[in-house]
Design a binder for these strands. Structure first.
Lengths: 240, 240
DNA sequence: CCGTTAGGTTAACACCGTCAACCTAACACC
DNA sequence: GGTGTTAGGTTGACGGTGTTAACCTAACGG
């Protein structure tokens, strides 16, 4: 019933007609982006197992070996697909906070929610990042944090300056928050949440994953804010 | 230089000689466990890419098709390998806390550290669980939490009763803590920590992953304990 | 003695990533 | 205008993959 994961379509990189697009960087032939699109679609429809050079090629109307004119090998193709996918994450996150006041805790929390939503809507990208690589971990730039890292860091620093959260090494705080939401999302991508969630008492049984994950994140917010230590003002809290 | 990930060897399941082993459950032929062992070794040596039916078979001295007498298909084999790997995690965690006082915060923290260590020593299992599987998420039982969940929950409940941590829904707290360490570990398995860590100021450049991850976790402990909210006893904290 | 089963074989199929060789149209240059 | 050179494409093949079908053989129960 969950259906195939869909992947968010990627920003079009055909230049707006008449624009004097600089020949820099993201010069990408029409065929090349058709290949990337086809690859993304196959990934979304059937996971990494469905993304074969031959399948991609036939979807674009080429022979498999033609792809090698654009990409060194399959790994390079997949990397580009994932990279393009994650490039959106930054914009996704930025849009999630554009209407929230700078320096507020809500802004930071909204980034967490957005990360969860993006991850669950693009889980194929995540699966690849954390699995496919033969051995050596990739550069951090490929990882979903990259774009989001600076966004989150900015919001955290602002929140510290405004006094919404306490002062501490912002990088540690950012990695901490990132770990929380990323771990949550990763766990829920691997487990059947049904069995775990009625344990937690959230939604009775067959709720959708995104809602359940977000609901749990909402409960996390309190823990993130106040910590696990018992109230120093010892007393009323939870008497009886 | 990081060398191949090694995987912890699995508990021997050949019955101790003379024991009246019940014919229940884990009845496993010698050949079958030889296959599982070979598969685990291949996984450790070369990742999932090196684990092919033919490679496993030849290592056991069989033809590839013989494996199908023991496992429905490759997926089933891999699942068993991973499942056996994770079965150890519970014991691993239990051993990490056996000398720590019940109800203490250290006990909870030690579980986090143990989880990180186990994950980094058995990362191949994690990669498979959280990424490779074709589509549908597996049952929660397969996930590394399963065994560990009850252990962690027990320690959390005890810590609440002793007053070491504040009272809250223990399941939410457990999932929260699990998310933190799991997220941390997952992120570090995917990124090159070098680039990220000197950002954070931990270890100058080429330190090993486990140490870096544990060091960061150590910094997290403070955030977990006290939360992000500014001290209510407003004042001294970080005055310039 | 015969049937069944467990455990194993070989041969084959369809698919995979990739390479080598070749083709063809477009363009730069003397 | 002829002549490289190159970008973009083809076909065919190689070795490897998971998996199936058919077959073999030894052990065991009736």
């Amino acid at each position: 019933m969950p259906g195939p994961d869909q992947l968010d379509p990627v920003l079009d990189d055909t230049p707006p007609p008449g624009s004097t697009r600089s020949v820099s960087e993201s010069q990408v032939s029409e065929t090349e982006s058709a290949i990337l699109e086809a690859a993304r679609d196959l990934l979304a429809e059937g996971g990494i197992g469905a993304l074969s050079m031959r399948a991609v090629a036939s979807r674009v109307g080429l022979s498999a070996t033609a792809l090698y004119h654009y990409f060194d090998n399959k790994e390079a193709l997949v990397d580009r697909v994932v990279q393009r996918g994650f490039q959106q994450s930054e914009e996704y996150l930025r849009r999630a906070i554009e209407n929230l006041p700078r320096g507020s805790m809500e802004r930071v929390a909204a980034l967490g929610e957005a990360y969860i939503q993006f991850a669950l809507r693009n889980r194929q990208y995540f699966k690849i990042i954390f699995a496919i690589r033969p051995e050596q971990p990739r550069a951090i730039d490929d990882v979903p944090g990259q774009g989001g890292y600076v966004v989150l860091r900015e919001s955290v620093v602002e929140a510290m300056e405004s006094g919404a959260i306490r002062r501490a090494d912002p990088d540690v705080v950012v990695l901490f928050l990132w770990s929380v939401v990323h771990g949550l999302v990763t766990i829920f991508m691997a487990c059947d949440p049904a069995g775990m969630l009625d344990e937690v008492g959230l939604c009775g049984g067959d709720c959708g994953q995104p809602e359940a994950t977000l609901a749990l994140f909402d409960k996390f917010r309190e823990l993130i804010r106040d910590g696990l230590a018992p109230d120093r003002a010892d007393g009323s809290e939870d008497a009886r």
